[in-house]
Each structure stands twice: as structure tokens, then as C-alpha cells.
Design a protein around this nucleic acid. Structure first.
Length: 583
DNA sequence: GCCGTTTTCGGCCCGACTGTTTTCAGTCG
């Protein structure tokens, strides 16, 4: 089967989009390539396999032509059209379009008129002031391009920070603005509101009795380092941590339009407006213009915006153009009833001082109880873990006794004696079966040997899934958001194996991981695999990250029924035993 | 290049900003 990953296909389609844009193709063709790339990126199955079977056209945005190109890439390793265009335009030209202020049109002009084909030759042309000879370029353009080159080039967009850091800044700001006497409504918008993995800057939308006073209040916050501009319409500030915060203050009757617009995603809004145009409506941040009467309808709430388009309200986490618009439309399948943090009744992955945690069994149990949980698995690392955090078999035996004693001593919560067992490179586990059989709960994870082939890694994890005493798989892909991609693994095959064995798959809620991700979570639940939302807490405060796991589940369209640890203690216990009996 | 409760052909999101212009193209989010 093809070893071509969806990420590789998406990159190839994006490149075709870039090259076609340089070639002067109509923008709609370019957009079609980029839409195709997104569809491939969001697909939860192997698109190469799908394309070879002639079924990739089932994906939205993939037609016969793109499918043909994907098949060529899978079978020959290259796409003829891309080869031709690459011969026509030097690779440096695409780099030039990444500079701020330089798009395909102007980059092409630089190439055609001055022969500029790399960042180096561009720098030389700027230095000799040759750019200003060109139509449409002036001294200002030269200056801006020079600044872009000096800024290290290739950095059109700023750096992103993890969602937990962004919310640690955004939530207190929103709370403070809500407390201000001049404010009425204050909501966080943007990717933070959609609970994306990471965030570039913060958008806040507000209405106010006294807009100027509220805008001024933003600048007065202790967390704010500097203010760029404030006035009746809001303001922009930078926090001491370097986060840019944009406050927009709007009339109450337009609050729904603005909040909808600035909550995004970009792709969701584009698809929304596209759907609106077909009904003779034009959506913008200012309102919904109706062609039939020329009236712009403003909306106090987002629900009104969607209602005008014949849609039910769409939760922010779903706004990624992954089918939510069709589902929300009249006559669509409807949107899922999403899981909420209050539905969680237990946690099946946490650590104590036995391995690398900072608290005792009792302290972790108390923290779980405080959150209203009725069951908790204590899952320290296993025999081969290393870093001095390994738990030899004899130590695990003593731990089982301690957990069971604590369970007897503490009311209101069932403590499961468990382990987070390492999956060895050959798929075996690092305790023997007799010891594993004595545990109430086993979650198996990969912690070593990440650089295996896709096939070997897949076999490794599937071997663990089929193990009779393995209840669940932890942080399946090993990704660290923004720093390390997941290792090569066929998630689709793993999900199928988990479905066959009723082995649960965790959403690790740590904001660095959120592993599995939203797209895989959706596929996992669709395959009938019970999904867990686990904190992987290493301290009593660590349980609080559950909300990021909930967010990933919601972004994956999951409801309460899809999440195993929303079950009562009795139901969960029965579920776990049924699954063990099947294996 | 994709797609269809006006279409298998003719459409294809919306507005702001910038620098260059004398009415606007290109870029950006």
C-alpha cells in the first residue's frame, strides 16, 4: 500500500497552488489546489489509498483532476504538472512570495523584469535601488522589502503560542474587562475561542456603555506592556509576554456579526459566505446583505447570523469547515451534542511520586474527588522507563497494595491500581503477564524508539492493542504541538485494531500534546472505539488540563456518549471488564 | 480546478490597507 502520507500529498497540492499562482493561473484554480490540500490534511484515512481506489473524489474539494495527480504522486513519486512548473520558476521565487508585501504578482514582475530569482538577488536589487524602476514599486516598497529581508525573511506570520499560555493571558483580560463599569458584553474570539492547539494573537469583541473608557481600561491592565492605539472602536495592546491583544468595541446590534466574523476560522467563514451567496446573501462583519431587498441585516447574536442563512447555531469548536455547515443547514444531518467538562466522571492516567509525579496516591485521590470524579486510575511509569522514574516489578507489587489500601480507606472514589506500561519496540510490554493480570487498569504508551518505519511502529502499537491486559493506549502519536510532529504511524490501521479489540484510545489532555488530535478523535469514535479524556496529571493541579482534552473532543465532533470516562463508575467498570473478556 | 434547492457551464467571500496611483491593483487576514 502507498507509503505516501496525507501531509505529503497536502504539501504537494499546496506547492501546485503556489506554482500555478506564479504562472498567472486564475485565482480560483489556485484556491482549488489549496482547498484540496486542506481536505487532504483533514482526512482521517489514507488519501493515497483512497485515490488509487478512485474514491478520493468523495472528499470535498477533490475532483477527478486532483485525484489523478494524487495517483501519479503515489505511483511515480511526482506530478508531471509540478515538474513542468518547477522548471519554469526557480524555487527561490516561492520564497520571495513569503515576504511581507510581496505576493505572486509582484514576485513574478521582479523575476520577469529584473531576473530576481532568490532572496539574495532580491537583496542586491534593493541595495542598488533598482526596484523603484518598476511600475507599481516606489521607494516605500523598497524600504518595506528591505525590512522584510532583514527580519529574517520567510516569516510572514508571527509565532504561535500554546493554547494554555494564550488563555492564561486572555481569560484574565476578559474577566477584568467584564468587571469594568463601562463594559456590557465581552467575549474572547479568534482561534482561542475555537480552542485551537495554538494561538497567534488574541481578539476580544465587546459592547460598552462608554467605549472610550473601556478601551482605555485595556491599556491600564497590569498585564499590558504597551498600547498601540485606543479609541471609540477599541484598541490594540501588547502584553509583557509579547502577546498582541486586539479589542474591538461595537454597537450592540452588530455584536453577533462581529463575534462571528472574528471567531473564524477563515475557512469556515469563506465557506459560510460561499453558501450565503447561493441564497442571495452576503455576509460580512457588519451584517448580512440581502440581494432581494438591498437591506443589510445586523445581528445581536451569532445564532441570528446562522439563522439568517437557514442554519442552526454552530459551536466555535466546530468552525473549521469540516462539514459543519452542511450539517447545520436545514435538511442537513444536524450537529452533534458535544461533550462538556462537567460530564467527566473519572480519569484513567495520572502519576505519583512512585515515578515522576509530585504527589502521593492520597493527594491525587483528594484532588480527583474535589473535581467530582468517582474513579481514578493511578498509572505510574513502568519497569524500563528510565530517567530514574522506572518502577521495577517488586515496586509495582507494593504499589498495588498501597492503592488498594487507599481505595478501602477513601470514600466516594474508586482507585484503580494501574500502570502506564511502556510498549517496547517489538510491541511487547515491560512487565510479565502475571503481574499485568493483577492490575486493575493498564494504559500502554510508546516512550522510546520513535524513529521506526511507519509499518514497524504500526505493528508495534497494534501488538499492544491486542494484548489481553491492555485496556487503553496513551498519547498515540507522540506529538508535541509546535515542536515535534508525531512519529510515523498508520492511525487508521491502529483505530481498526482498537475497534476489533475494544481497546480504548486516550485523548491526552496535556496542552502540549492533545494527542490524539481532533481529526483522529473523530475517526476513532466513528469506528466505535471508546475514547478516553485523560489528564496525565503529575500533580494535584494537573487534573485541570482536562478542559483541553474536552476541547479536542469537541473539535472532533464527539458527544458524551463517545467518551468512556463520562460513564458512571459502575458502567465504566462493566465496560472495562467486557472488553477484557473479549480479548 | 471544483461544483450544483437558479447551473454539467458559469460562476467562484468580504473588506481593509498600502503604496502607488489620478481610479486602483496587489496583498493581507
Amino acid at each position: 500500500m502507498p507509503t505516501l502520507t496525507n501531509a505529503q500529498i497536502a504539501a504537494a497540492l499546496d506547492e501546485l497552488g503556489d506554482l500555478n499562482e506564479l504562472d498567472g493561473a486564475i485565482i480560483h484554480r489556485v484556491v482549488a489546489y489549496r482547498n484540496g490540500a486542506k481536505a487532504v490534511r483533514d482526512a482521517s484515512v489514507s488519501v493515497a489509498t483512497l485515490a488509487v481506489a478512485g474514491r478520493a473524489t468523495e472528499l470535498p474539494g477533490i475532483g477527478a483532476t486532483l485525484q489523478e495527480k494524487i495517483v501519479a504522486l503515489a505511483e511515480t513519486g511526482t506530478i508531471p504538472a509540478a515538474e513542468k512548473l518547477r522548471a519554469k520558476f526557480p524555487a527561490g521565487l516561492v520564497e520571495i512570495t513569503r515576504l511581507p508585501g510581496l505576493g505572486p504578482k509582484r514576485a513574478r514582475l521582479l523575476y520577469d523584469e529584473l531576473g530576481i530569482d532568490s532572496l539574495e538577488s532580491l537583496r542586491a536589487a534593493v541595495a542598488s535601488q533598482r526596484l523603484r524602476e518598476l511600475k507599481g514599486f516606489g521607494p516605500k516598497a523598497e524600504e518595506n522589502i528591505a525590512a522584510g529581508l532583514d527580519a529574517g525573511a520567510a516569516e510572514k506570520s508571527g509565532t504561535r503560542v500554546l493554547l494554555d499560555r494564550a488563555l492564561a493571558i486572555g481569560e484574565p483580560i476578559v474577566a477584568a474587562l467584564r468587571d469594568h463599569p463601562a463594559s456590557e458584553r465581552v467575549e474572547l474570539a479568534g482561534s482561542a475561542r475555537r480552542w485551537a492547539d495554538s494561538v497567534k494573537d488574541l481578539d476580544i469583541i465587546a459592547t460598552a456603555r462608554d467605549p472610550a473608557a473601556l478601551a482605555a481600561a485595556l491599556g491600564d491592565l497590569e498585564i499590558v506592556e504597551s498600547v498601540q492605539a485606543t479609541g471609540e472602536a477599541g484598541g490594540r495592546a501588547t502584553t509583557h509576554s509579547g502577546m498582541s491583544v486586539d479589542l474591538k468595541i461595537v454597537a450592540p446590534e452588530q455584536f453577533g456579526n462581529l463575534l462571528q466574523h472574528f471567531s473564524g476560522s477563515r475557512e469556515h467563514n469563506m465557506a459560510l459566505r460561499d453558501a450565503a451567496v447561493r441564497r442571495g446573501l452576503h455576509v460580512s462583519e457588519y451584517g448580512v446583505l440581502d440581494d432581494s431587498d438591498g437591506v443589510t441585516h445586523t445581528c445581536e447574536t451569532e445564532a441570528e447570523v446562522y439563522a439568517l442563512l437557514g442554519m442552526e447555531y454552530i459551536e466555535p469548536e466546530l468552525r473549521e469547515n469540516r462539514g459543519e455547515l452542511a450539517a447545520a443547514a436545514n435538511g442537513g444531518d444536524g450537529l452533534p451534542d458535544l461533550v462538556e467538562e462537567k460530564h467527566l466522571r473519572g480519569d484513567l492516567h495520572c502519576h505519583t511520586t512512585l515515578s515522576d509525579g509530585t504527589a502521593s496516591i492520597e493527594e491525587m485521590a483528594a484532588a480527583a474527588l474535589e473535581r467530582g470524579y468517582t474513579y481514578l486510575a493511578i498509572t505510574d511509569h513502568s519497569a524500563s522507563h528510565g530517567f530514574g522514574d522506572d518502577v521495577p516489578p517488586a515496586a509495582l507489587e507494593r504499589q498495588i497494595e498501597r492503592v488498594h489500601a487507599a481505595n478501602a480507606a477513601i470514600d466516594g472514589i474508586e482507585l484503580l491500581a494501574g500502570s502506564e506500561v511502556n510498549i517496547m519496540p517489538d510491541g511487547s510490554l515491560d512487565y510479565d503477564d502475571d503481574l499485568l493480570a493483577r492490575l486493575d487498569w493498564v494504559i500502554a504508551s510508546v516512550h522510546t524508539s520513535f524513529n521506526m518505519s511507519d509499518q514497524r511502529m504500526t505493528d508495534r502499537v497494534i501488538t499492544a492493542i491486542e494484548h489481553p491486559w491492555v485496556d487503553a493506549i496513551g498519547h498515540l502519536t507522540g506529538r508535541k504541538i509546535g515542536t515535534r510532529p508525531g512519529y510515523a504511524i498508520d492511525v487508521e490501521a491502529v483505530i481498526a485494531a482498537a475497534a476489533g479489540n475494544q481497546t480504548m484510545i486516550e485523548i491526552n489532555a496535556n496542552p502540549n500534546r492533545r494527542d490524539i488530535d481532533d481529526v483522529h478523535a473523530r475517526a476513532t469514535a466513528a469506528a466505535g472505539v471508546p475514547v478516553l479524556i485523560n489528564s496525565d496529571a503529575h500533580s494535584p493541579g494537573g487534573f485541570a488540563v482536562a478542559r483541553y482534552g474536552i476541547a479536542t473532543a469537541r473539535r472532533g465532533w464527539l458527544g458524551k456518549k463517545d467518551i468512556a470516562n463520562t460513564r458512571t463508575q459502575k458502567q465504566f467498570s462493566a465496560m472495562r471488564k467486557r472488553a477484557r473478556n473479549r480479548r
